[in-house]
Deep mutational scan, measured.
Amino acid sequence: MDETGKELVLALYDYQEKSPREVTMKKGDILTLLNSTNKDSWKVEVKITVNGKTYERQGFVPAAYVKKL
């Protein structure tokens, strides 16, 4: 869990989004878990840094590609 009590997951593999509802992640990324009720895909939040500014983006990733921490 992070400092706000949200559950975290670790990306086990790289994943490139295939639709606007998904998010891209790299192996080793730590993501905030938002919903894990679907056995196939979990909703997560990723933090992306562009030019020194951090943005948050929500979307789905394959459940088999992440592990709860």
Rank of each mutant, 00 (worst) to 15 (best):
I48H: 08
E3Q: 14
L33F: 02
T4P: 13
T32D: 02
I30K: 04
K39F: 08
S19L: 07
D29M: 13
I30A: 01
K67V: 14
V61M: 02
D2N: 14
D2T: 13
E56H: 15
V61R: 01
T24G: 08
S41R: 14
M25L: 10
D29V: 06
V66S: 00
D14H: 05
L8Q: 09
V50Y: 09
D2L: 14
K47P: 04
D40A: 09
T4W: 12
G28W: 06
L33E: 00
K18G: 08
D14A: 05
S19D: 11
T32A: 08
I48C: 12
T49I: 12
V9S: 01
V23F: 11
M25H: 01
K68F: 09
L33I: 02
L33H: 00
E22G: 15
M1Q: 12
A64T: 09
G28D: 04
L10R: 09
M1G: 13
R57H: 06
T32R: 14
A64E: 11
L31H: 02
A63M: 03
L33W: 02
Y55V: 12
G52H: 04
K26G: 03
R57E: 01
K47N: 08
Q16C: 12
N51L: 08
M1I: 12
E17P: 15
K68P: 08
A64Y: 09
K68M: 11
V61Y: 01
P20Y: 08
V23I: 14
Y55N: 04
K26P: 01
I30G: 01
K67R: 13
L69M: 09
L69D: 01
L33D: 02
L8Y: 15
E22W: 06
R57A: 06
E17I: 05
G5A: 13
L31K: 00
S41K: 11
V44S: 00
K47F: 09
S41F: 15
R57I: 09
K39Q: 11
K26R: 12
L8V: 07
N51K: 08
Y55I: 12
E3G: 14
R57K: 11
A63D: 02
N51D: 13
P20G: 08
E45K: 12
V9M: 03
V9Y: 06
K6R: 14
K47R: 13
R21W: 15
S41G: 05
Y13N: 07
Y13A: 10
V50F: 09
R57P: 00
W42F: 05
T32S: 07
A63I: 05
S36T: 09
F60D: 03
T54S: 09
W42T: 00
Y65T: 06
K39Y: 08
V23C: 07
Y15E: 01
Q58T: 11
R21A: 12
T32M: 10
L33M: 02
K27P: 02
T32L: 14
N35E: 13
T54A: 07
K53Y: 12
T37H: 10
K43P: 00
L12G: 00
